[in-house]
C-alpha cells in the first residue's frame, strides 16, 4: 500500500491517462480526476470537456492572465485551446447524455461490484447536490472511477453501495493505487496490480468479490 496519499493519487492519475486515444472527448471531475490531465501523453490529442460549456479546455492560466469569464465546472480559472469552443448548458448536456463523451472520470463515496456508484450525498451529513454527475455517468460511453483503495482503513469498493446512488450499473473501470478492476456483467475482474502491491494485499483490502484476470498485468 502506498502510504503517501499525494503519491497514490499520482499513480492513479497516470494510469487513467493511458486509456485515452486522440480525438476522444473526456470529462474529468473535480479533485483527483483533474490530476489526470497532467499525465496525458504529448502525442495524444483529446478534447477535455467541461460541463459548464467548454470543449477543448486548456491548463490554468499564468498568474495575472485569468479571465473571470473562463472557468471550469469547479469554478477555477482555466484556458481554452486554439481548437476549443464554448456553448450553453443545454448543448453541453446534449454532448454528455448523447454519448458523445467517450470517458468520464470521477471520484466515489462508494462503488460496488455491480458498477453502481454513490457519489453525491451523505444523508443528514453532506447534501451538496448531484450537479452534472448523474447525467455524466449515464451518458458517457465509459465511466472510470478514480479512488484511493481504502478510506480510514475501510474498502471503498463494496459488495453493494449503501448510500443513495448516483446511477445504477454504469461503472466500467475502477482505478486505485493498488490496481485496476474491470466491471463486467459477470462480475468484477482484477486486470492489473501495482508493482508494489499484490493480489493478496488487494484481497485483504477489498470488500467486493472479484476474480483475477488470467493475463494479470503490472501497473507502474
Amino acid at each position: 500500500m502506498i502510504e503517501d496519499q499525494k503519491l497514490a493519487k499520482e499513480v492513479i492519475a497516470r494510469r487513467i491517462a493511458r486509456e485515452f486515444k486522440s480525438n476522444q472527448i473526456v470529462n474529468l471531475g473535480i479533485g483527483l480526476p483533474t490530476l489526470v490531465a497532467n499525465h496525458i501523453p504529448a502525442e495524444i490529442n483529446i478534447y477535455l470537456q467541461s460541463e459548464n460549456g467548454i470543449m477543448g479546455m486548456g491548463p490554468a492560466p499564468a498568474p495575472g492572465r485569468e479571465d473571470p469569464d473562463v472557468t471550469n465546472a469547479g469554478g477555477s480559472h482555466v484556458t481554452v485551446l486554439p481548437h476549443g469552443s464554448y456553448f450553453d448548458s443545454a448543448t453541453s448536456f446534449g454532448l454528455i447524455r448523447g454519448s458523445h463523451v467517450e470517458y468520464t472520470v470521477l471520484g466515489a463515496l462508494e462503488v460496488d461490484q455491480e458498477g453502481n456508484l454513490a457519489s453525491w450525498i451523505i444523508p443528514g451529513k453532506k447534501v451538496p447536490g448531484m450537479g452534472g454527475a448523474m447525467d455524466l455517468v449515464v451518458g458517457a460511453k465509459n465511466v472510470i472511477v478514480s479512488t484511493l483503495h481504502t478510506e480510514k482503513g475501510k474498502s471503498k469498493i463494496l459488495k453493494r453501495c449503501k448510500l443513495p446512488l448516483t446511477a445504477v450499473k454504469v461503472v466500467k473501470m475502477i482505478v486505485t493505487e493498488l490496481g485496476v478492476f474491470k466491471v463486467t456483467p459477470q462480475g468484477m475482474i482484477l486486470t492489473e496490480v501495482h508493482k508494489d502491491s499484490s493480489v493478496d494485499e488487494i484481497r485483504a483490502n477489498t470488500e467486493a468479490d472479484f476474480t483475477v484476470a488470467a493475463d494479470l498485468k503490472t501497473m507502474e
Binding site: 448548458s89 448536456f93 450537479g131 452534472g132 454527475a133 448523474m134 447525467d135
Partner: peptide
C-alpha cells in the same frame, strides 16, 4: 429541490 444539471437545463429548454 435538487435536480440533475442536464435534466434541469433541459426542463428549462
Amino acid at each position: 429541490e435538487l435536480i440533475p444539471q442536464g435534466t434541469l437545463i433541459e426542463r428549462i429548454r
